[in-house]
Structures are given as C-alpha cells and as structure tokens.
C-alpha cells in the first residue's frame, strides 16, 4: 500500500468533528476504517472520541454507530454481533458486516477490561480498537493504568517528593494476547502503513481481534499540534511503544528501531514530563524508566524470536 492508494480509499470518519487541532485519534480511526471492506458497525465507549465526533445533530461517522457507557463497549458490540449471527443463521440477513468497538485507554485498560475480557473469551467476531492516549483526557487529564511512569496528571501530580505517576503502565496487549485470540497487535498513529496493514489483518481474523494504537493527546501530553506524529513516532523509536503483532499465538516484531533513541529524548518533548528536567534533571528516575523500557524490549524480542 502506497500513500496515494490510501488516499483513494473511501473515508468513513470525516472532518468537521470537534477534536483538538493535533489530536491523534481522528487519524487513527480514519486509517482503520479505510482498511475495512465490508459495511461497518461501530460501537464507541464514552470518551473524547465519542464526545467530539457525535454531538447531535452532527456526526463524523459514515457508518452505523452506537454509543455505550464507559465500561461496556465490548459488551454492547458482543450483543450486536450475537444478534447478527443469529439473524444470519435464520437466513434473515445475508450481508457480511464488520463489527468494531472503539474505546480509549480509560475505557479499555481500566473500567472496560472486564467487558473486553468477556467478549474475547466468548469469541465474538469483532475488532476491538483501543486508542491509547495514556490518560483520561476527556475529563481533564487524570492518570490511567496506561499513563507512563513519571507523567504529571491532575490525579498523579508532580511535586517535590513524588515525580508524577509512580506506577509503570499495564501491558494490555500482552493481557489481551493471553486470551489466545486469533489476532492482537500494537501499532501507532505515527505509522500509517503498519496501522493499515494490522487493521486489514484484524478484519480478516476468524474471531476476535485487538488493536492497541498509540494516539497522541497534545493537551494531556503537553505537545504542539504540529508535533503529534513526531511524538508518537518518538515513543516507537525509543522502544517505549514497540510495534508488534501476535498472530495465532505467534509473536512478531513489526519494527526494530535502527538507531538508539533514549526514552529521555521522547520525554523531553512533552510538558507532562517537564518536572523531570526542570529545575534540574532527575537522572536516577529517568535512568530507572530507561532500564524498565530496555528490559521490556528484551523480553519482547525474546518472545518474538522464540516464536520464529
């Protein structure tokens, strides 16, 4: 797929929504929906995505759309998919339809994890997409279990004693993969080709599929609108957000950054880590984060090479 070809694909998430300038999720959704061939039914958890794209009487969604509460989009789409399967069996519908559930990291890592796990275990043929912007941004920037260690949020405030969020993020992609579903992958909105390819695979999977897509939030991360793609790319290059996929149980790296790109460089691009650099650099803390990122990367590489 070349970029000009992508541009020719029909767009199912159109402009005019009220997301911030430089927001990452519209790019994420647009590319994913462009990879869908069948008619699409979208379920969407409460969050920025739903709030900014569906303010009645307007919508950005050129497809069927249903909103759910914060915790249950996977359950709502399970219900739709189950009804569809039943109608198809009865011969009352013959179309092939693609079902997608969208949720942010708050609605997926935290409050929606139970519904997601249930849907994966039951085996509904749906694609669950988590657009991970590493925090509760719609409610004014609170920490989530996807927020990186050290980030300043309103509920993990950086002060003299505590330098922002204390915990490392949850490894959701691995948790999802442990359900043994046909396809799970981690991607980033900075890598459109990787995202498009993985969305294609997810739609083609024979059973539940999952995409965890890093999506910049310029307000929550403290970055300039024009840097949205670069910051997401920095997360990938620094190996903090590796691109990989798990296909029928096989782990595979999608990208191996060539040059050494320290996590520090990625952090220094963002206002939410400012306290780690000013008034003086918190060397030990940053080193600790770097070594955790290195250890997780090595573990991932081991998993991927063991499978090949």
């Amino acid at each position: 797929m070349a970029l000009p070809d992508l541009a020719k694909k029909p767009v199912r998430f159109i402009g005019g929504h009220r997301a911030c300038a430089g927001c990452g999720f519209p790019i994420t959704i647009k590319i994913i929906l462009q990879a869908a061939e069948n008619p699409v039914i979208v379920g969407c958890a409460t969050g920025c995505m739903e709030v900014t794209s569906t303010i009645y009487p307007y919508t950005s969604w050129e497809c069927s759309f249903i909103h759910s509460a914060f915790e249950n989009v996977a359950a709502t789409v399970s219900g739709i998919e189950a009804a569809y399967t039943s109608l198809k069996r009865q011969g009352r519908i013959d179309k092939d339809i693609t079902f997608i559930a969208f949720g942010g990291d708050g609605g997926t890592y935290d409050i929606g994890l139970q519904a997601l796990s249930g849907a994966l275990e039951r085996g509904h043929k749906m694609v669950y997409v988590c657009y991970d912007n590493q925090g509760y941004m719609n409610t004014g920037i609170q920490r989530s279990s996807a927020t990186p260690r050290g980030a300043n949020t309103t509920t993990s405030p950086a002060g003299k004693k505590v330098p922002g969020k204390q915990q490392y993020p949850k490894d959701l992609t691995a948790i999802v993969a442990a359900h043994g579903i046909p396809y799970a992958a981690q991607s980033s909105m900075s890598h459109w080709n990787d995202l498009y390819r993985k969305a294609k695979k997810a739609f083609a999977a024979d059973g539940p599929a999952f995409l965890n897509v890093l999506s910049t939030c310029r307000l929550g991360w403290g970055t300039a609108p024009e840097d949205t793609v670069d910051v997401a790319d920095g997360a990938v290059q620094s190996r903090l957000w590796p691109l990989y996929e798990i296909e029928k149980g096989k782990w595979k790296l999608s990208l191996k950054p060539r040059r050494h790109y320290p996590v520090e460089k990625w952090m220094s691009m963002q206002g939410r880590f400012r306290h780690l650099f000013n008034p003086q650099k918190n060397e030990t803390f940053i080193e600790e984060i770097q070594s955790q990122v290195d250890a997780k990367w090595e573990e991932l590489v081991r998993r991927c090479s063991a499978e090949t």
Partner: peptide
Amino acid sequence: GYPITPQNEIPDYMAK
C-alpha cells in the same frame, strides 16, 4: 474516586 465531569475538581484537589 474515578474521573467524571462535572466533579473532577474534587479528585484533582484531593490528589494534591
């Protein structure tokens, strides 16, 4: 607590 509008200032204040 847990984030939800229009009461986020309560957890935010408490966190601090």
